[in-house]
Simulated assay, not measured.
Amino acid sequence: MTDTMLAAETEGGGSWLSAIADWTVSLMDTIGPVGAAIAVGMDNLFPPIPSEVVLPMAGLAASRGSFTLAEAILWTTFGSVFGAYILYVLGRWLGAERLRRIADRMPLVTGDDVVRSVAWFEKHGSIAVFFGRMVPLFRSLISIPAGVARMHWWKFGLLTTAGSLIWNSIFVMAGFLLGENWHVVEQYAEIFQTVVIVVVVVAVVWFVIARVRSALRSRAADDGDAGGAERSGTA
């Protein structure tokens, strides 16, 4: 697939996404569809590696006869589920109580935040896991709270498999149908990921500002109470 790699570099302008695409092609060139599973599994463990680029390359390889389209979809889905389970186990190992103690030692967050988050996940976790598999960044991170909340392993696996199968099939098919024009997917994938990152950054900034304001109000109230108590004692 040397010509494919050269096309990727030319069309992608040498971007970091094109570099990932080149690496993915080399991996699949060497070990076949198992390479696609490894690449997608790493996407789960290292969110900066976008599956929106890795998956179309698996479809491209299938279109060139390196392996079948069914193999591309099945192996990439296996990689997604396997990577998700690693983070799920990490979440179960951490546990809600351990996270609560850690949160109590951190600025701007408290153990109550962890308790509320776990309670929310226990109520809406199924939807979060299923649709979370289709959102960049959250696709990986959603596995950790599932483990913390101790979602049944079979339920987590079923929802993860279903969400991953839908997401992977869309992008693998896009790569299969577009062939050498797979870079069209790359352009939209980069925009999609950028939008998600911007939304996350805005949410984090809003959270920090809200917590700082709350801390300042609490401190002002405590100072007022202390001053009132001191004047009362003097009188």
Rank of each mutant, 00 (worst) to 15 (best):
A119W: 14
A119P: 15
W120S: 15
W120H: 13
W120V: 15
W120T: 15
F121H: 12
F121Y: 14
E122W: 08
K123V: 11
G125S: 13
I127E: 03
I127H: 02
I127M: 05
I127V: 09
F130A: 06
F130W: 02
F130V: 06
F131V: 02
F131N: 01
F131I: 04
G132Q: 06
R133A: 00
R133C: 00
F138S: 08
R139Q: 06
R139L: 04
R139N: 08
S140V: 05
S143M: 03
S143C: 05
I144C: 10
V148T: 01
V148H: 07
A149E: 01
A149H: 03
R150K: 12
W153A: 03
W154G: 05
W154E: 01
K155N: 08
F156I: 07
F156S: 02
G157W: 13
G157N: 13
G157Q: 13
L158F: 15
L159E: 03
I166M: 08
I166S: 08
W167I: 11
W167T: 09
N168P: 07
N168H: 08
S169C: 12
I170D: 14
I170H: 12
I170L: 15
F171D: 11
F171G: 07
V172R: 12
V172Q: 11
M173H: 09
A174P: 12
A174I: 03
G175D: 02
G175H: 09
G175V: 02
F176D: 01
F176S: 00
F176A: 00
F176Q: 00
L177R: 03
L177Y: 00
L177T: 10
E180P: 06
E180C: 09
E180N: 13
N181M: 12
H183K: 11
H183C: 13
V184S: 15
V185F: 00
V185I: 11
V185W: 02
V185A: 03
E186K: 09
E186R: 10
E186C: 09
Q187H: 11
A189T: 04
I191W: 08
I191F: 10
F192A: 15
F192Y: 12
Q193T: 14
Q193I: 15
